[in-house]
């Protein structure tokens, strides 16, 4: 089977998260097989370095340099990795699986969200890394962060979406109840599956389990709020039945501010939210798209394709795991000049 993408050695089980280093030279892959895999993006591709965990890993991010990373997963612990020495340090733990992990480079803090309904703030460089812990109304599914505006977006079960300021999170003391800047409800009627902040930080895109993507803006001004909209995506007519697939992955292009979406139907689309147009639809992948990440230099799109355990993939393709790099995104994601 041939695809136009460069393929890297995939993990043994589903891909849960992808992260590029700031220099775009390294790619971290978190997998349900209980490992994180560090790929050097050289030509020709080399075998990744594999770091194992006692349970499935759900989230991974690079830290202050491309030699440090943080991971979390079903074993509830937040781990710091040093790739120079291969050392692992457990920063602390949550009471349930760590579902999302985000590094805020401008504040040098780490944010972790968990199904135990707490958001924790860590300062990895200090001896007691846990800075503060915040109780939220429901299980956290994903956290997004925009260095451009220092905003942190937390999406939860029951369609909660809260907006925090990274500075406020960094300075909050333990025990202090921090009010978010905004407490919003998702514009979509169904469970939020994925979320991504715009490159300019002015708004975000969120995808639901019911084949729909919403574009919303942070600015509480009614004029800005009136611009929010939602549209249907990742649907397919199979044998006369309109099949509706979860939107598993969203990622904004760091320069062009257009975004890619990937669904359990195995399709990846590139959208221009300001023109309200689809710019590109890539051909179907044999299994669901689990995760997408643009490299910070905007030249590559990393694609993790694997079955998401959501009924959307044929029995026979459920074991397929693919890890691909698409390097034509600089062309594909460039907004068309307005006519």
């Amino acid at each position: 089977m041939s695809t136009g993408d460069q393929s890297l050695q995939p993990p043994a089980d589903g891909i849960s998260a992808l992260a590029f280093s700031a220099d775009s030279q390294r790619l971290l892959v978190a997998s349900w097989d209980g490992s994180i895999q560090l790929h050097e993006l050289t030509i020709p591709p080399t075998a990744p370095r594999i770091f194992t965990h006692p349970a499935a890993v759900l989230s991974v991010t690079f830290g202050s340099s491309s030699n440090t990373a943080f991971s979390g997963g079903l074993d509830k612990r937040v781990r710091e990795w040093n790739f120079e020495t291969g050392q692992c340090r457990v920063l602390g733990k949550h009471d349930d699986a760590v579902s999302s992990i985000v590094w805020c480079p401008e504040k040098q803090i780490l944010l972790t969200g968990s199904w135990d309904q707490t958001l924790k703030v860590w300062t990895p460089s200090s001896d007691s890394p846990l800075t503060s812990s915040h109780n939220l109304p429901n299980r956290i599914y994903s956290i997004a962060h925009s260095p451009a505006t220092s905003k942190v977006l937390v999406s939860m079960a029951h369609r909660h979406v809260w907006v925090f300021d990274a500075g406020a999170l960094a300075s909050a003391a333990q025990g202090q109840t921090l009010q978010p800047e905004q407490q919003r409800e998702s514009a979509l009627k169904f469970l939020t599956r994925s979320i991504a902040l715009m490159a300019d930080g002015k708004g975000w895109a969120s995808g639901s389990i019911e084949g729909r993507i919403a574009v919303e803006y942070v600015d509480p001004d009614p004029a800005a709020q009136a611009q929010k909209y939602a549209f249907r995506a990742h649907r397919q007519n199979v044998d006369g039945v309109d099949c509706v697939y979860p939107v598993n992955a969203l990622a904004y292009h760091p320069q062009y501010n257009t975004f890619a979406s990937g669904g359990s139907d195995g399709f990846i689309s590139i959208w221009d939210h300001s023109a309200k147009k689809r710019m590109k639809l890539y051909s179907k992948y044999p299994t669901a798209i689990s995760s997408l990440a643009f490299s910070p230099d905007g030249s590559k799109l990393a694609i993790g394709a694997s079955y998401e355990h959501d009924n959307a993939v044929n029995e026979s393709d459920r074991g397929t795991v693919m890890l691909l790099i698409k390097d034509t995104v600089n062309v594909d994601c460039k907004p068309k000049p307005k006519a």
Partner: peptide, 27 residues
């Protein structure tokens, strides 16, 4: 199971949460 073409009709838990409950992933 899928309902009316909706692959994940469950609005109380995400696919990942259900997946984590499977015996082979349980920690």
């Amino acid at each position: 199971p899928p309902k009316d073409g909706v692959m994940w009709p469950d609005v109380t838990a995400s696919p990942a949460e259900k997946r984590a409950q499977q015996a082979r992933y349980r920690y």
